Simulated assay, not measured.
Amino acid sequence: MAEAWEFFSTPRNLDRLTPKSVGFKITHCASETMHQGQIIAYKIKVAPMIWVSWLTEISQVENRVMFVDSQLSGPYKVWHHTHRFQENENGVMMTDDVAYVMPFGILGELVHALFVKRQLTHIFDERRRLVAEVFSAKSASAT
């Protein structure tokens, strides 16, 4: 649990867990360790040559149990992402729970259906793969 928590509570590791195709860049992160109230700024590529700024706050932290990042401004009307950690017989299970609302009413719903839902599925599928890669590499190097 300590190793998993340390990895996920280091904001700069988010870059390692985001597919390169997303065009994700952290533009501001004053602290290398996560804490409640921490502000993190990013840029993401939403289309070729079109970047959107995204500002989030770590709004809640319960050490080695969960943390929440909430959008202050960015591409969504609402973004509330809860990361939960639970030890089990196989190690640690990390669960992402994301609640979001698209902006722009019916136009946002159309963009969601055509693009955003598929993109988010890709991001979290890839994140699952990258997490397994990071932690199996750590396990392999520890033996």
Rank of each mutant, 00 (worst) to 15 (best):
S136E: 14
F124H: 10
D96K: 04
E57R: 01
E6D: 15
P11W: 03
S141K: 15
H80R: 04
Q36R: 15
F104V: 06
S141F: 09
I58H: 06
V65D: 08
F67R: 01
V92G: 03
T121M: 12
D15H: 10
T33V: 13
M49G: 04
D69Q: 02
F124E: 01
Q71V: 02
T56P: 03
V22Y: 12
R118A: 14
N88K: 02
D96T: 05
L110F: 10
G74H: 04
V78P: 05
N88P: 07
R16F: 09
L110I: 14
W79N: 02
V52C: 08
T121W: 11
L130Y: 13
T18Q: 13
S9M: 05
R16D: 14
E3P: 00
E126V: 12
K117Y: 00
L14W: 13
I123P: 09
V101L: 05
T82D: 07
K117G: 02
Q71T: 04
C29K: 06
F24K: 04
A99R: 12
D97W: 01
Y76A: 08
S9H: 01
R118T: 04
F135Q: 10
A41F: 05
I39A: 01
F104Q: 00
F135E: 09
V52F: 07
E133F: 06
D97A: 11
M94F: 00
G108E: 05
Q60Y: 02
K20H: 05
I123T: 10
W54L: 05
V78Y: 06
Y100N: 05
Q86S: 11
F124N: 07
I26D: 04
M102H: 11
L110K: 08
S141G: 14
G108Q: 00
R129M: 13
S70G: 06
L107E: 00
R84K: 11
Y76W: 08
E133V: 05
V98S: 03
I58T: 08
P48A: 14
F85D: 02
H28W: 00
E32D: 14
L55E: 03
V134S: 14
T10M: 09
L107C: 03
K77P: 03
G74W: 03
H83S: 03
D96S: 08
A41N: 15
V101G: 02
G108F: 08
L120Y: 06
L110V: 14
T95K: 09
K138R: 15
T27Q: 10
F24I: 04
A2W: 04
D15E: 14
Q71W: 00
G91Y: 08
T27N: 08
F104T: 00
I123H: 12
S59G: 07
V52S: 09
K45E: 15
A132W: 13
R128E: 11
G105F: 09
A4P: 01
Q119V: 11
T33K: 12
L130M: 15
I123C: 11
A137S: 14
Q71N: 06
E109C: 08
E133R: 12
L72M: 13
L110P: 01
P11K: 01
R12Y: 12
H35M: 10
C29A: 10
M94K: 04
F115W: 15
S31M: 01
